[in-house]
Design a binder for these strands. Structure first.
Length: 430
DNA sequence: TTCCGGATTCACCGACGCCA
DNA sequence: TGGCGTCGGTGAATCCGGAA
């Protein structure tokens, strides 16, 4: 039929580097033998994917090919006999594929500069086999996948691979390349990138020299805290992965290491996990800050050891904090803050905790510090839920250059009392 | 000084469609 | 049928500025 002899061209113990076992000549031969026709079904060899026997290659390779047949292949060519040189078995005829690589299954991804990627088709689906710095590495990854699926290699001779590794790969499921992908390191973290950890989700802050862990959930980055040593950050990330993805978590360390707490972690909602298990300043502050601008929690221990919890509203003007009283609820305190803000010259609606509603009546002037600076809230939690625009941030929102000009103008307009006349706020309001 | 969040970049991956 | 080229989405990594 259309079989093409794919055995290596050997003569006198030498291996012809230009030998060809690839599909190109095989297909040409097939076409020559039966132009326009596929191989007749009876000529095909049915291959059982569940068996570990090599699948007859449509390209012309065969199960009895001494070069590529099953476990035998590992012993066919002794690498030492060829001086350990790599022996390409692929289409190295000087032909460069459309992908810009001379190797099978290797492509250049124009989105990823200087890297080669490789993939293999399995059961009508493309399986990604990772990115590599060199064509050769990518070609070898492809070969390993091909070896796993079809018991043959396409780019380099099987003898150039580590026999032990290839035997191990042979044992991996050929219908599900997940195990192989893990073996190849696909989807795991990059290594050797300057300044970063070799672990996923962990990087080192240059400024603080601390290890920062974070995870992205539904497009939003969530902080997992700062850690003095890398492994603490790694574990924080791993645990967060388990919380978010359960058994499908891509952990840095073997997931079995978390067996003792996996059930507990998986039961967490991420926010709950973050609040209870992650020690960040924000969370430490969370129990005394409020979601409202200019409002914070105030606890007062009484003589009978009873703890009184109130919400304190305060505003910062001219760098000085002024109390706006203590309130039973956050909302009341927030309204008190809004009242104080409204009485500031040039105030903006978006400084308010309740910008949508009717403007509150301004607080009596005597009750407030003299105007002269953008109002600042009590800080802390005011940044987060209040849209990240705390009182002080108002100045930022005006823009760097403009804000600087305004500040300069304000400084120039200072009265003998030491405060800018007309107010910094007024200039900000432009 | 430390912590945090926004913005940006780009590596990674899956998948689609063309072609041999 | 499978190799190949490419595109788009996701998310990790990093930078940077502001707030505490």
């Amino acid at each position: 039929g259309s079989r093409v002899d794919t055995s290596p061209t050997q003569s006198g113990g030498e291996i012809d580097v230009n030998m060809v076992v690839d599909k190109v000549p095989a297909k040409a031969a097939m076409k020559a033998a039966a132009p326009g026709k596929r191989k007749a079904p009876e000529e095909s060899t049915v291959w059982d994917p569940s068996s570990k026997s090599p699948k007859p290659d449509s390209n012309g390779g065969s199960a009895d090919d001494p070069q590529i047949s099953g476990a035998n292949a590992l012993a066919v060519v002794d690498p030492s006999a060829i001086g350990g040189a790599m022996v390409p078995v692929g289409n190295l005829k000087g032909k460069v594929s459309r992908g810009g690589s001379k190797y099978k299954g290797v492509y250049r991804d124009k989105n990823v500069s200087g890297k080669y990627k490789c993939s293999i088709r399995r059961a009508e689906r493309e399986v990604h086999l990772g990115y590599y710095g060199s064509e050769e590495e990518a070609a070898r990854a492809y070969d390993k996948a091909h070896w796993c699926c079809k018991s043959s290699t396409k780019n380099f001779d099987i003898s150039t691979y580590d026999a032990e590794e290839m035997a191990k790969i042979k044992e991996m499921p050929s219908n599900d390349l997940t195990v192989l992908r893990r073996h190849l390191g696909v989807g795991l973290s990059k290594e050797g990138k300057e300044g970063s950890s070799k672990y996923r989700g962990v990087c080192k802050e240059k400024k603080t020299q601390k290890w920062r862990a974070e995870i992205q959930i539904a497009g939003k980055k969530e902080s997992l805290g700062y850690h003095a040593n890398e492994m603490d950050a790694v574990r924080a990330y791993d645990r967060a992965q388990i919380v978010v993805k359960g058994d499908k978590a891509k952990t840095n360390l073997p997931i079995e290491q978390y067996d003792a707490e996996r059930a507990k972690l998986a039961a967490y909602d991420f926010n709950e996990f973050q609040a209870k298990e992650i020690d960040t300043k924000a969370h430490r502050n969370a129990n005394w800050t409020s979601n409202f601008r200019g409002v914070r929690r105030y606890t007062h221990k009484q003589k009978n050891d009873q703890v009184n919890v109130k919400w304190r509203a305060e505003i910062t003007v001219n760098g000085k904090k002024k109390s706006l009283g203590y309130h039973d609820t956050q909302e009341e305190a927030a309204k008190a803050y809004d009242k104080a803000v409204v009485s500031q010259p040039g105030f903006k609606r978006h400084w308010l905790n309740f910008p949508e509603g009717a403007l509150p009546a301004p607080a009596p002037a005597a009750a407030l510090p003299a105007p002269g600076d953008a109002p600042g809230g009590a800080g802390g939690g005011a940044r987060g839920a209040a849209g990240g625009a705390g009182g002080v941030k108002v100045a930022k929102s005006v823009g760097g250059v403009k804000a600087k000009k305004a500040a300069a103008a304000a400084a120039a307009g200072e009265t003998e009392a030491g405060r800018p006349e007309g107010g910094f706020l007024a200039s900000l309001a432009e």
